[in-house]
Simulated assay, not measured.
Amino acid sequence: MPTVLITGATGFIGRQLLAELRAEGRPVIALSRNARRAHALLGPGVRVVENLDAIASETRIDAVIHLAGARVLGQPWTAARRRELMLSRTGTTARLLALMQRLQQLPRVLVSASAVGFYGASPEASFEPRDEASPPRPGEFQSDLCAAIEQEAQRAEALGVRVVRMRFGVVLGTGDGAYPMLARAARFGLGAVLGDGRQAAPWLHVDDAVGLVRFAMDRNDIQGAFNAVAPDGATQARFVHALAASFGRRARLRVPAAPMRLPMGEMASLLFDGQNAVPRAALAAGYQFRHPKLDAALMDLAVRAAKA
Rank of each mutant, 00 (worst) to 15 (best):
M1S: 15
T3K: 08
V4T: 03
L5V: 13
T7F: 13
T7C: 10
G8Q: 05
A9L: 00
T10D: 06
F12S: 04
G14S: 12
A19G: 06
A23D: 14
V28L: 07
V28M: 01
S32A: 04
N34R: 14
G45W: 01
V48M: 10
T59C: 09
D62Y: 10
V64R: 08
G69D: 10
V72F: 03
R82C: 13
R83H: 14
E84P: 01
S88K: 06
S88F: 10
T90F: 03
T92N: 04
T92G: 09
L96C: 07
L96A: 06
L96G: 02
Q101C: 03
R102P: 06
L110M: 00
F118D: 02
S122L: 15
S122R: 15
P123E: 04
A125K: 07
P129Y: 11
A133S: 14
S134N: 07
P136W: 11
G139A: 00
S143N: 15
Q151V: 08
R155H: 11
G160V: 06
V161A: 08
V163N: 03
R165D: 01
M166Y: 03
F168H: 12
G169C: 03
L172N: 03
T174S: 13
T174C: 14
A178W: 00
Y179T: 03
P180H: 08
R184H: 14
A185I: 05
A185C: 07
R187F: 01
F188S: 03
L190G: 10
L190P: 05
G191S: 11
A192T: 12
V193M: 02
R198M: 08
Q199I: 01
A200F: 00
A201K: 08
A201F: 15
V206G: 04
D207A: 05
D208A: 10
A209W: 02
G211Y: 00
G211P: 01
R219E: 09
I222S: 04
G233R: 11
V240L: 06
H241C: 06
A244L: 07
S246W: 07
G248K: 08
A251F: 03
R252P: 08
R252F: 09
V255F: 10
V255C: 11
P263W: 06
G265M: 14
Q275K: 02
N276L: 08
V278G: 02
P279N: 05
A285C: 02
A285M: 02
P292M: 06
P292Y: 06
A296Y: 01
A296D: 08
M299H: 10
M299F: 09
M299N: 04
L301V: 07
L301Q: 09
A302K: 04
V303D: 06
A305Y: 07
A306W: 02
K307T: 13
